[in-house]
Amino acid sequence: MKIAFALIVLALGSVVFHLLSPWWWTPIASNWDYIDHTITLTFWITGIVFVAIVLFMAYCLWRFRHQAGTQAAYEPENKRLEWWLTILTSVGVAALLTPGLFVWHQFVTVPKEADVVEIIGQQWQWNFRLPGKDGVLGTSDTRNVTPENPLGLNPNDPHGEDDVLIAGGDLHLPLNRPVRVLLRSIDTIHDFYVPEFRAKMDMVPGMVTYFWFTPTRPGTFAAICAELCGTGHYTMRGVVVVEEEGAYQAWLQEQSIFKQSADAGNGTGEGTSLALSATKTGSAP
């Protein structure tokens, strides 16, 4: 009986703790409230199943407790019970998976008008690249990575000459404009994650993965790596600033482009503006 009572306290205590817990999500700052709704639905389904099973166990402990003069009945099979368990389990699994499939479809369907930004992960910092005036990102290859070209851009691709590079600095995004985030890793598996945006995706060496979102709240948000990527994993942090269009354009004009860094690496002396913009933004070229 003591164990049955402990199980009842466990079930009810878990529900009360969940409802009164001070630990919850950070306030959302993107369009992905669908993800919050899906997680909430998952909590309800798994919570109801958890409470039902624990209370059923408590009931069995009380109902079938040892009593003098009683003997347990041996029933090796109960097809009716097995069918009910199979049907209920199938319904529960379908209820868990179906909302996620709808959200996933939205998650991978990028709006045609979305801006593009590339995020490159490396041990242990974030680098960013945005298309220049031509609106097209240049090609890249990890075999092109050098101290002068840390992001591995193709120096022979004219589309990459005006690409905006932010090595180790802050990423700025315009408010209420969808953005497609291309994810690339130079060394190992990383995962760019801003909790307030909800959206994230692994960055796998040799692949370009992606997700998209629309920033809906201005502010400064911390970006972390959500994948254990080595001894310096805990230091892999960044900053994403969401701001109005005017402030975003002013910030964009201060950034350096790939051609400037390439010229600086070639010793042509044309990289002066790169150093100046790095000083203004507090980032390293």
Rank of each mutant, 00 (worst) to 15 (best):
F102I: 12
T142G: 05
D115R: 14
P99K: 00
A94W: 02
D115K: 12
V108E: 15
Q123R: 11
V117H: 06
L101I: 10
N149I: 03
G138A: 10
Q122R: 12
T98I: 12
F128Q: 06
K112N: 11
R129L: 08
K112S: 12
P111E: 07
P99Q: 00
P147F: 04
P131W: 03
V110K: 03
F102E: 05
G92S: 02
G121Y: 08
L101N: 01
W126H: 05
K112V: 04
P111I: 06
V110C: 06
A94L: 11
Q106F: 14
R143P: 02
T109E: 12
D115C: 02
S90I: 04
T89K: 10
V103N: 13
D134R: 07
Q125N: 06
R129K: 12
R129M: 12
G135S: 09
L137G: 04
N149E: 06
L130G: 08
V116L: 08
Q123Y: 13
V116K: 07
L88G: 01
T146F: 08
L130T: 03
K133V: 12
G92T: 02
G92V: 00
N149K: 04
K133Y: 11
W104D: 14
V103Q: 13
I119H: 02
Q122I: 09
G100Q: 12
H105E: 15
L96C: 06
L130D: 05
K133D: 15
S140V: 02
L137M: 06
W104Y: 15
I120G: 00
T109V: 11
T142F: 09
Q125K: 03
N149S: 06
S90V: 04
V117P: 08
H105T: 14
V110T: 09
G121D: 01
V108N: 13
P131R: 11
T146E: 10
H105K: 14
G121L: 04
I120L: 01
T146I: 07
E148A: 12
G92Y: 00
L97A: 08
Q106C: 13
R143N: 10
G138V: 07
D115A: 11
Q125I: 07
Q106A: 15
A95P: 04
G92E: 01
V136S: 06
E148V: 05
T109Y: 09
Q122C: 10
G92H: 00
N149T: 02
I119P: 02
V103E: 13
W104L: 14
L101W: 04
I119E: 01
P111T: 07
K112C: 03
E148F: 08
T89F: 14
L130P: 05
